[in-house]
Write a protein that binds this DNA or RNA. Structure first.
Lengths: 201, 201, 201, 201
DNA sequence: CATGAATGAGGATTCATTCAT
DNA sequence: GATGAATGAATCCTCATTCAT
């Protein structure tokens, strides 16, 4: 009626977020397939049955987590804009421990979700939607004029480089998953070259 | 004892490979968690029980598959050396359908295994071993003098670029998993820039 | 206290009937075991919790539905009295779609309830009570003199035939459940013979 | 190869029958919906998981039970042929306690299955198949010449009466379920009249 | 060596019922 | 009176692993 979320709506939203937070934590810790609904429920401090009042099934939870990633990634992209040294920002991002940061999924979970995209059409579609949006966001940034914080690439080039950029980011996620203890300085130098290629006029 | 594989040894090896081949096919098709031992056994044309004579458990199978990847990747690297256009080779690799090529794992399986590396220490260690070897191989290539098919980078630089290279490759795998239908030409242009950065003197 | 239902009493009665109507509709549609309290509540336009203010549990609802059947069946019997062609009336009853007629239970639900009578003593007792009453009603009709709309059977015979009659009716319900698309004409001829036997002097 | 069931086949058949026997016993005792797979497994003296090697799911078990009914009913029909007093045979059948006779389903289970026929299309189809076969068998008997143990009805009439007969039988099952303690003599007299109508030339 | 039957713990999900508001 | 969120036991089913043959 009013457009203002009712108390009930707000509660529903809160519960959904409580569940998503717990599920994310569990998925990060144990992996998507190993984390059981019972564990998620316990982590969320509720009974297993209650989860099903807010999510149709386990899959719907991951779907929601995936969807929530868009906003987070867009936020990350926006942070990058105001950065002097992009390579350092990326490597920092690589280094950051997500243990506390419950909102963001860990690199291993990112890998699992990506893998799942190839198995489950729904997840595939959700991930695809995000990837398109992120690439668009990146292309926009790269194309924007330097005095507006952009890099002034031609639109066509910007789109190509946006793709190169996500490849770089995905590659970093994979590295983080496979070699979490990789030397920071070493990584920095490797990323420097790639970032330069992405931004090159 | 003798260093010469006995007949029994050879049979054991054959059985292991039969299982690994079947398991790889199943993991590629259904994913590591979804593929059941029963399916693998059926695919290998043997009984489920028999698998346990050759592998301690399901985990040992992936471990073996991961280990077998080293040789395959090294082969790939060697193929790259004799390539004119590295970017095209990489993109071709991206495009190639692995349906027939039973030895090589698919991109989604690569993602799954990488994720598993963060959950299972044994897998983590196995993957780490491979990554080090591959990076060494790549660094060696990049450092080798151009008249020997190399790129003549300084050893230190070569190591950095080798890392950049695996990041690029992993990124491509992730892309293939998340957007399998990505336009080839588009991808080619994006990879061109990154490859140039990797090889740049 | 007063014998006159208070306003509260009347409201209670209304609520009970609202629930019974909804429950009957749900049981007819989905079956007694499959229909959930949540569905019944939604159908009745109330909250699940409220149902428990008017019925102790799910079982009590069926019990009430069963009990409400007596009046309906007696009404049916009374309608039969003024019928020329009993067989046609029965077959019509068989044919009638109960979709609209929310009060009357469908043949499948009749079967389910009968089965439940053997599992749940309370339901068994309730059903037994109805069956006795219906048989008495039928016997009374069969024994009544023809000029009063009866069939003038001797009381003892009437009781036997009443039993035969309910067997016939139950058999029709079973048929309707098992072969809902049974040819009408075919059925009519079969019932003719049986009805004749029931009414035969 | 030989047409002779192999040992494995025979074992599979034995296991299936062990399960069906246990399931029938459980369904008779607790009802189809209330009997759990765990209970059935325990009754069969095996683990729950093993049942799924022989039946796809719970539904497949009932389906198999239903299908096995055809042979049993046909046997019953054949027994009726050599009977002097059909009404007595039917009533005896009504009286017989099936507790021991594990093969035959009880009247309540018959009711449950009939009800289920209206809910589950597979069960509906299976039951329909049986009903057609049984009616055909009965019609054949009624049409056969008296010196061959038949009743010499015209084929068309025989078909009608076969329908009347199953209505009578179903009615008896319903009665047995709803009033298991019904007086035998009373029932006998009621059935006499109906049987006469079925057999009447 | 090989089979495949058997186990049983564990997983996702449902739903009658309760109770704080 | 009325709500509907919350519970948690129970259900069906899967599957890695074992072991008698």
């Amino acid at each position: 009626m009013t457009g203002v979320p009712s108390v009930a709506e707000s509660h529903k939203q809160q519960q959904r977020e409580r569940i998503l937070k717990a599920a994310t934590r569990c998925f990060v810790r144990e992996g998507f397939h190993s984390a059981s609904m019972a564990t998620i429920a316990a982590t969320a401090g509720m009974s297993p049955g209650l989860i099903y009042r807010y999510f149709e099934n386990k899959n719907a939870i991951i779907l929601a987590i995936i969807e929530s990633q868009l906003a987070i990634i867009q936020q990350r992209v926006r942070e990058m804009r105001s950065t002097d040294d992009l390579a350092t920002t990326l490597v920092d991002y690589f280094e950051s421990q997500d243990a506390e940061d419950v909102e963001s999924i860990s690199a291993p979970l990112f890998m699992e979700m990506s893998a799942e995209a190839a198995r489950d059409p729904e997840i595939g579609a959700a991930i695809h939607r995000i990837d398109l949006a992120v690439r668009a966001e990146l292309a926009d940034w790269l194309a924007r004029s330097p005095d507006k914080g952009g890099h002034g690439l031609a639109p066509e080039i910007a789109r190509q480089r946006a793709l190169a950029f996500v490849i770089l980011i995905d590659g970093l996620k994979a590295r983080k998953t496979r070699e979490p203890d990789l030397d920071r300085a070493c990584l920095k130098r490797a990323v420097d070259a790639l970032v330069a290629a992405v931004l090159e006029r």
